[in-house]
Design a protein around this nucleic acid. Structure first.
Lengths: 339, 339
DNA sequence: CTGAAAGCGCTAACAA
DNA sequence: TTGTTAGCGCTTTCAG
């Protein structure tokens, strides 16, 4: 496949008996060019089928009008919604978006960083891979003053801007809701504790328990990688214990789903014997049977906010402060906790 | 935000008292450079924190090692899985991926084409927007011999390569399955008829009906944009008619979901009174109640195949034939049709 | 095996 | 208001 010779600004210049710089300025709507010339240039450009070469422009200006995004996996609904938000806002402001997936692997994440840097993106939005423990690769950006905004999965080690949802409040709402339904032995299945969001959901849960003087049982707070299989194992462990919980607050909907499936299999009635609350409001949660009570977080909004923040930094509207934006969550009450 | 001055190959050259060309060749593992020099260059590069500038390289070589993807919306599971497949295969072969969303709008799609062309992608993978009727914008690529592969939503007007799933077979399997369950009045809710895939699903359905001598009732074949609301309207129209169907094959799972919800509301039992089959196996379909019988199509596989085909064309392994690759589908039998 | 020099297409001082 | 010129960082002929 050989690519055709492309039309450049010089072809337009030659056809119009003018210079490349005039054409360049005309196409960029520079005020120093007369309307007449601009019009002539634009017409000739169209006639010749000129298409700008962004590579050349970017190389020269050292500004690509492109932002990079690093996410664990695009196929998770929260992240694809976030990307939709990022894309929408970025495009409106004239920016392109390059997306890289880390597949939750540290090494892949470091690759993404290299790729994005090689493409000379103007800024980066990232959500950290589950397996990432060392954050040095991000220094590629921070060392060079390339703005960086983390969302959802953030880390305290790096001093950057962050956009998160109110996980603490979410955990609190979930637990308080179960308490209000009369549950007494409320278990919590939490996620990897090096990620703030799971710590915060857990802390919110603890706060609600303490506020209402509910006994906290260490055996009923377990940490899990939160996959479907892990959820099954947790369900089994909790529900087969000698003193099983009458409610479980799971740190994500996938785990809550596992609990519901396990309970069905064992003839445990939901919500009568066991109330369940999840987190995220995945697309399937509404349609489970019983439908799942969960904490809703808008990926789209997070994406938009992160992009807004990033572009403000890129365009010097705000300095590179270490801002953390917290977006609201809300509890969606459904059948799985409706005693 | 000012970006720091970056290290270039000339900085490495200076530090090593050699020339830029040697450094360039060493970093690209050119055979004309001695191992000793290569090693020295690589070490110095690491020491100085050199990061290649892809823009400059791309501009020079007129090859970006980047492929562009145009999809209707990333938040649909089929498409995000396809992207996962595209990314995985592309990355393995050393290519980057730029993703653009058309939001199912023709104008946005044309914008995507411009953006990708300006970025000088080496090839493009696209799935057509629902609202697109005019395909001229794709000529930007075809006119310049930039390889183009369509997937899923393809169009006959453009002579390009295509990767699709076997929609005809899917429609056939769905209808034959319902027939095998003893259904006699089998309705079909089809999608926009300018897209091949919906035509093919419909034709597959018709073929099965004819094969088994089931009467085809024109009133019970309706075209719909297939959104959740449209599905509700279709369900109402079909089920409130004087001669309601005993089975519905919907061209997507979203519509099948609407039917199930509508039937529940009206006290119509599924599958006893009405059997339902969808198409796509969305993430929620397994968890509906009753769980939804549907035709599974692998977005991931489609993505991988499309990328494989595209890269083969880019790398001249095959000429730009008009190949159409058809991937298999299979029926997943669940409760909604289990009479 | 290595170096000098040209140039990819564009932008931006500076000069006119 | 327009043109001249240099150069972004890299690759690649051609010459040694």
């Amino acid at each position: 496949m050989k690519k055709e010779n492309n039309i450049t600004i010089h072809d337009i210049a030659k056809a119009l008996n003018t210079s490349g710089s005039t054409v360049s300025r005309a196409l960029n709507d520079n005020s120093r060019i007369s309307e007449k010339t601009k019009k002539a240039v634009r017409e000739m450009a169209k006639k010749l089928g000129y298409q700008p070469n962004a590579l050349a422009s970017n190389l020269r200006t050292n500004c690509t009008k492109t932002i990079g995004v690093i996410i664990p996996r695009i196929s998770r609904y929260f992240f694809s919604s976030a990307i939709t938000g990022i894309e929408e806002y970025a495009r409106e402001k004239g920016y392109n978006v390059i997306i890289c997936q880390s597949n939750d692997q540290e090494e892949r994440e470091a690759d993404c960083v290299q790729t994005l840097f090689a493409s000379r993106v103007d800024g980066v939005i990232s959500s950290i891979a589950l397996k990432t423990n060392n954050y040095d690769h991000y220094k590629t950006f921070t060392n060079r003053n390339i703005p960086l905004v983390f969302f959802d999965r953030v880390c305290d080690e790096l001093e950057t801007n962050k956009v998160v949802v109110d996980d603490f409040k979410g955990g609190f709402l979930a637990a308080e809701h179960l308490i209000s339904k009369g549950c007494k032995r409320i278990a919590h299945i939490s996620g990897p504790q090096h990620l703030n969001l799971y710590i915060n959901r857990l802390q919110g849960y603890l706060k609600a328990m303490r506020k209402h003087n509910i006994q906290i049982n260490e055996d009923q707070i377990i940490e899990s990688p939160l996959s479907r299989e892990d959820g099954m194992a947790c369900a089994k462990r909790l529900l087969e214990s000698s003193n099983p919980p009458d409610a479980i607050f799971a740190a994500n909907d996938t785990t809550a789903l596992s609990i519901i499936l396990y309970a069905k299999e064992k003839g445990i009635r939901i919500p009568e014997d066991l109330a369940v609350v999840g987190f995220s409001n995945e697309p399937f949660s509404e349609f489970l049977s019983p439908s799942l009570t969960t904490v809703e977080q808008s990926g789209f909004d997070v994406g938009v906010k992160a992009t807004e923040l990033l572009l403000n930094i890129i365009n010097n509207k705000i300095g590179n402060t270490q801002e953390t934006i917290v977006l609201p969550v809300n509890l969606i009450e459904r059948e799985s906790s409706n005693k």
